[in-house]
């Protein structure tokens, strides 16, 4: 149940307006030009950061003005932010994994350089993938 006590019917009062929307459009087009121009310089790995930062500013402008979040009930903005937040969690933990693989080897790891290489028959990359429904005596499915 809405907690608002004011009684305006839909359309009684509106924020925003053509002037603000048009100004916002020009700001967005300007930022597009800036991001294309910035991409032609080489800032190293900062390029991606700059591009995403400009994109985020543009997204915020679209959200605040075109989608009326600036004047809307805060719950809608919270929902949108939550969406990006959980996407961020997904991205962060995935990168935590892929960027740290092989960084931490056990202390008693044997020196693999002098080890005898495994025969090709044991190397999955050098043998064709088994046909899935080949009759195998004990079909072992090992996943959780």
């Amino acid at each position: 149940m809405s907690t608002e006590t004011h009684t305006h019917v839909q359309g009684a009062k509106h924020h925003g307006g053509p002037l603000i929307y048009t100004a916002n459009l020009f700001a967005l087009m300007f930022l597009t030009v800036v991001t294309v121009a910035a991409a032609s310089f080489n800032f190293g790995s900062a390029n991606v950061v700059i591009a995403l930062a400009i994109a985020s500013v543009k997204a915020i402008l679209v959200g605040l003005f075109f989608m009326h979040l600036l004047w809307d009930k805060p719950v809608n903005a919270i929902i949108l932010i939550a969406g990006f937040l959980f996407l961020g969690i997904f991205l962060m933990f995935d990168f935590l994994d892929v960027t740290s693989r092989n960084n931490y080897l056990p202390r008693n790891m044997p020196n693999m350089e002098n080890a005898t290489p495994a025969p090709d028959s044991m190397n999955p990359l050098k043998t064709p993938a088994p046909r899935p429904l080949d009759p195998a005596p004990a079909k072992a499915e090992e996943h959780k």
């Binding site: 969690i89 933990f93 994994d97 892929v98 960084n103 931490y104």
Partner: peptide
């Protein structure tokens, strides 16, 4: 529930840092 999913993958080839964190 959104920040613990890696505990299904402790032995799946995930990095050791990720396993500890999860």
């Amino acid at each position: 529930s959104f920040i613990v999913w890696g505990h299904h993958m402790f032995v799946a080839g995930q990095s050791q840092l990720a396993t500890v964190v999860f």
